[in-house]
Structures are given as structure tokens and as C-alpha cells.
Simulated assay, not measured.
Amino acid sequence: MILEKEDWEEPECCFRPHIAAAEAVHTGSADGGPSVREVIQGFDRLLDRDAKREAAIYLEDWMARYEEAGDWASQITILNEMMGFYRNSGEREKGLAAVEKGLALVGDHGLSQTVTGGTTCLNAATTMKAFGKAAEAMPYYDQAFRAYGGSLPPGDYRFGGLFNNMALAWEDLGEYRKAEAYYKKAMDIMEALRPGSLLEIAVTWVNLAVLYEKAGREEEIDGCLEKAVEIFRSGEVPRDGYYAFNCRKCAETFGHFGYFRIKKELTEAADRIYREAGEEPGR
């Protein structure tokens, strides 16, 4: 039986290391300071401690530095991170501003057919979708697919994130058959990348459960959720900040379906990981 809906949303799919961080146009530093990759690692450490306010200030500070230096390549990397961060924190104005600037930089510097350009289009589309612009997002998902297709092997992990997020957008548009097809495309890629992709597989099972509810296929919901729980409990999955992030994102959906014990288990696991990370010496 489906219980009354709580305040929840479907978890999006993203791979770690962050898509944006992995696709910086360059990783060096002209002035001897930290590379943009090292900057993103610092951002990750703040997220691992659940220090959201400090993480926002950190990103904005580095964005201002790169703007002052005229370093457009590093700006693209930071803007990709901003899209994801503001999407998750629900800050519509800031998230869409990052989308606009990121896409403009990609266009200005002729990157639309590169992996970096594809990644920016993917993050932009997913942010637009999160803020109610699923139809407007679809051309950018298509552009990401074309860019990846021209540069990456078909089994690359980035296609898994792309297909999963495309499925979420089709679902928002009421195209449930298309959404299911893209979830299955994502699952095929991620299954081939186990065990490093286990959390992404769990998120996809959770998303499929939500899709099946909308499509009136309630008999398939429990099987999806049970497969996701098995992964969250698996000893193969590192109990790190990324695990905590996904626990929190999926916990509300489990609660929505009446899996209150699992919701409590995942929430407590996330709280424990963040608490221990914050207490770690030198953090």
C-alpha cells in the first residue's frame, strides 16, 4: 500500500569522482597555487563533513578568484560543481545562474563537442530539470550524448549518469516507457562497472520504484526497493561521504513507500558518517 506522500524527491544519479571535477580542461596552476583538481578535492572534503555553508562559501570564493584571473577553464569546472551543489540545496536562482554562465563559456570557447562541453551540458540539463524545466533540458541532454559519443567508448561510466538523468527528465514529462528504457540503459553500463558503481545501481533501483508507482505498476515496486537495500547493506560499498549522501537522498523515498525502518537505518548511517568525519583530527 502506498502511504501519503512525504516531502521527498527522486535521487539523481552522479558518479564519484565528480563528473565536473574529472573533466577540467586543465589541472595545472599557472601561479604555483593549488590546481583546480585540488580545489575540488577540498570541496569534497567539506561535503564529506556535511559542511554545506562552508562548501558554498568555498566555491564562491574560488569562482571569484578564477574570474579575476581570467581563468575560464577553471571557471567551467567550478560552475559544474555549483550546478550540482545548488541543485541539491534547492537554490534555484543560483543554480540557473551557474547553468547560464557555464553554457556560455562552453559556447564561447568552442567546447560543445568535447567531453568537457558534454559534461557541462549534462549538469546544466539536470539542474534545469530539477527546477521544473525538463522540456527545456532535453536538447542539452542530446548535446551531451553527441559530445560523449564522439569521444568516449559506449561503456564509459559517464553514459550511465547521462542515461539515468535523462530517464528522470522523461519521467517528469510523463514519458514513462522512454524513462524505463533509459534507466535500463544506465543499469547495463553500471552493472559492467561493478563494484565501483554499486551506489549508482542502488539509486537506479530506487528511481525505478518511483517510476513504476507513477506508471501504475505497483507490483514491481518492492522488488526494486529490496535490491537497493541489499546494495546499501553490502560490505562492498565504502561507508564514506558519498555513501552518506546517497543514504540521505534515498531515505525519503523509502519512507514514501512505507519502508520506515530502512529510512531510519539510512538516515542514521548518514548522520554517523558525517559526525565522525567532522570529529576527525585535522578536518
Rank of each mutant, 00 (worst) to 15 (best):
L3F: 12
E9N: 06
E9G: 09
E9M: 12
E10Q: 08
E10H: 02
P11R: 06
P11F: 13
C13Q: 06
C14P: 00
H18Y: 15
H18R: 12
A20S: 15
E23P: 00
A24V: 11
T27G: 11
G33H: 04
G33W: 08
P34Q: 01
V36M: 06
R37K: 12
I40F: 06
I40W: 05
Q41G: 05
Q41C: 03
Q41R: 12
G42L: 08
G42Q: 05
F43W: 11
R45Q: 11
R45T: 00
R49T: 00
D50S: 04
A51M: 07
A51V: 01
E60A: 06
R65Y: 09
D71R: 06
W72V: 14
W72L: 09
W72N: 03
A73Y: 02
A73C: 02
Q75E: 14
I76E: 01
T77H: 02
I78V: 15
I78P: 02
L79A: 02
E81N: 10
G84F: 07
F85A: 03
Y86R: 05
R87P: 00
S89H: 04
S89C: 02
S89V: 11
G90R: 08
E91F: 05
K94I: 10
G95P: 01
L96N: 07
L96A: 10
L96V: 12
A98E: 05
V99S: 10
K101W: 14
L103S: 07
G107A: 14
H109W: 09
G110D: 14
G110S: 06
Q113W: 05
Q113A: 14
T116H: 08
G117H: 01
T120A: 13
T120L: 15
N123D: 09
K129N: 13
A130K: 13
A130M: 10
F131G: 09
G132L: 11
G132D: 09
A135K: 13
A135N: 03
E136T: 05
M138I: 15
D142N: 11
Q143P: 00
A144T: 07
G150Q: 10
L152Q: 02
Y157P: 07
R158N: 13
R158L: 15
F159I: 10
L162E: 05
F163E: 07
L168D: 06
L168E: 06
A169N: 01
L173H: 04
G174Y: 02
E175P: 00
K178P: 01
K178A: 05
A181P: 06
Y183T: 04
M190P: 00
A192P: 04
L193Y: 06
P195G: 09
G196C: 00
L198K: 03
L199R: 04
L199T: 05
A202R: 11
V203E: 04
T204M: 14
W205H: 15
N207F: 10
A209H: 06
E219R: 13
E220N: 10
I221T: 06
C224P: 11
E230A: 15
F232N: 09
S234Y: 12
V237L: 07
R239W: 05
R239N: 03
R239H: 08
D240T: 07
G241K: 02
G241F: 04
Y242D: 10
R248H: 00
K249W: 04
C250T: 10
A251S: 11
H256C: 08
F257Y: 10
F257K: 12
I262T: 15
I262Y: 08
K264S: 08
E265F: 02
E265M: 13
E268Q: 14
R272V: 00
E276C: 03
R283Q: 11
